[in-house]
Amino acid sequence: MTTPAPTSTTANNSTRPLRVGVLGLQGAYTEHLYMLQRLGQTVPVEACIVKTAAELDPAQIDALIIPGGESTAMALVAERSGCLDALREFVHKQPTWGTCAGMILLSTTATQTKQGGQNLLGALDITVQRNAFGKQTESFIAPLTIDGIAPADQPFEGIFIRAPIVEVAGPHVQVIGKVDGDHGLQHGERIVAVRQGHLLGTSFHPELTKDLRVHAYFVQMAREALGL
């Protein structure tokens, strides 16, 4: 950050930038990187792409974003790249946000997965239904109200692309956003944004918009979780 570090060696280190890694195995990861770089102009945050177990080190990055992409492909590549265990360990302790496929990976249970199922990180206590709205022609954009992020008079542009929904949220999971109306196979209110302590999950893609509010929320949430 451009802000000079305090000269005093004690106390105030609140300007230390939060170091966010974006998991770069597959998917829309550079989009998250560019969003964090833009956010970094006003908020102390630094971002980098991580691809290996060695890079998933809390000594190097404070928090992680798992981007949208194909969750099956991402899980298989993670396993074969030898970083599945490091990922599991990281997300159980450090602040992590999963968007779309990333939320599926973070979950404890996923339905409508490929034959034989898929690897999950099992940290966020939700049951996720993959491709819940249908095929690509059912993808849609809808205005969302999200607790602590987007009030009803300033909704967030929710971009849902072959998106999952949260079918069941566990007792410690806070539902912070729902989508309403008729969208493909879904009718009525469906959970699309959740928070559980140091974990955040969204069905939609804030990284495909120019709206920094969810990224700013995640950075703030991560700082609080880490006591920074």
Partner: peptide, 17 residues
């Protein structure tokens, strides 16, 4: 413009694949 965001967005999710 919205339709194009969805079309191009799916391709963005396929990157690196």
């Amino acid at each position: 413009a919205q339709e194009f965001t969805l079309k191009a967005g799916l391709a963005q999710n396929l990157k690196g694949g």
